[in-house]
Amino acid sequence: MNTKTYASEHNSPWNKGKLVGQKMPLRISEIWAIRVRLEIYGRQRDLALFNLAIDSKLRGCDLVQLRVLDVVHGNHVANRATVMQQKTKQPVQFELTAGTRKSLLEWINVAGLRHDDYLFSSRISGSPHISTRQYARIAHQWFDEIGLDPTAYSTHTLRRTKPTLIYRRTKNLRAVQLLLGHTRLESTVRYLGIEVDDALEMAEQTDA
């Protein structure tokens, strides 16, 4: 096998050569459909990964590189955590809800993870943690299992879900910008697609 060619393919982005549009955020009912399914089938790693993805609102490249020490203080999972974003080189803080803390602690104990271990190690030799490509495959499986079209959803769906819910509830765009770690407010507007959503909502409420 050509090692150079394999390395190039292995390190290429999962979405290279594919059309990737704005992905739908999950509805609350869909969040719980995935969560309950993972709980019923005892998929502890996936449950911890899913809950952390929703709460953290991190890009995939940052999520897969989280270590135990990023979320655990002493013997308990922290209420909040801060990480440095690869893309912006800026820190971003996120909350960890009770359900997420519980699933993370259970996963850490079951997997026997140490303080400096990656939260989600890879089964592929030479890779210390799951790759963004692996994360994308896992997420697509979640969507498929509850009957969603995997082509309409992606890991960005998980990043967008909670900020979208927060914006719809509060209309506080600045707060969402801080939660996403965006340096420009315009980036948040484009990312959430809120101008289009707000226009459609107004249209739906208007009788012609």
Rank of each mutant, 00 (worst) to 15 (best):
K4Y: 12
Y6F: 14
A7T: 06
N11P: 11
K16L: 14
K18T: 10
L19V: 10
V20T: 10
Q22D: 15
K23I: 02
P25G: 05
L26R: 00
I28L: 12
E30D: 09
A33I: 02
R35A: 13
V36T: 13
L38T: 00
D46P: 04
N51V: 00
L52S: 05
S56D: 01
K57W: 01
L58A: 04
G60Q: 03
D62K: 01
D62P: 05
V71M: 07
V71C: 08
H76M: 11
H76Q: 15
A78V: 04
N79R: 05
T88S: 08
K89M: 12
Q90R: 10
L96M: 07
A98V: 02
G99Q: 05
R101N: 06
R101P: 07
L104Y: 04
E106V: 00
N109T: 10
V110Q: 10
G112A: 03
G112C: 10
H115C: 12
F120E: 08
S121H: 12
R123C: 11
G126Y: 04
G126M: 01
P128R: 00
S131K: 01
R133T: 10
Y135V: 00
I138E: 11
H140N: 11
F143E: 06
F143M: 08
D144L: 08
E145C: 02
D149P: 06
S154W: 03
H156R: 06
T157S: 14
R159E: 01
L165A: 07
R168A: 09
R168M: 10
K171H: 07
R174Y: 15
V176R: 00
L178D: 11
L178T: 13
T183V: 12
Y191P: 06
L192Q: 07
D197V: 01
M202F: 14
M202L: 09
Q205Y: 15
T206R: 11
A208S: 13
